[in-house]
């Protein structure tokens, strides 16, 4: 029962992160939405450790965290480049590829 509550909570958190990603214009806030979605997935894996009493859930959490770290680093580096060279931080102004 504990694990099921956590899985449902993870579902709701995923939706919250998804809406944050869609409705925010600034890149930092969108990246926070992505982090929320990744954490929702982590919560579901942790609920899996409660059910299956396995080491697999925590290993997947470890891998997802490593991927989130890489993606945050690269995304923030791109944000720094953008804000330093183009003075852009909103995605509304990134229109170079608009056809």
């Amino acid at each position: 029962m504990d694990a099921k509550i956590c899985i449902i909570c993870g579902l709701i958190l995923f939706f919250v992160g998804f809406f944050a990603l869609l409705y925010r214009k600034n890149i930092i806030f969108m990246m926070l939405g992505i982090e929320m979605m990744l954490n929702a997935a982590n919560l579901v894996f942790a609920a899996g450790t409660q059910i299956y009493h396995n080491a697999d859930g925590q290993i997947m959490i470890f891998f997802i965290m490593a991927i989130a770290a890489c993606e945050a680093a690269v995304g923030l580096a791109m944000l720094i480049w953008l804000s330093r060279n183009r003075k852009i931080m909103d995605t509304d102004h990134l229109t170079l590829l608009r056809g």
Binding site: A3, N42, L43, A46, Q50, I61, F62, M65, A69, L76
Partner: peptide, 26 residues
């Protein structure tokens, strides 16, 4: 919550990696 669910390793690395490193960079 991870600690409650029995995932102690995940609880600790969540603080060390996510709250203590990634969010510091943010």
């Amino acid at each position: 919550i991870y600690g409650f669910l029995g995932a102690h390793f995940a609880a600790v690395i969540q603080i060390i990696v996510y709250a203590g490193a990634i969010m510091v960079v943010f």
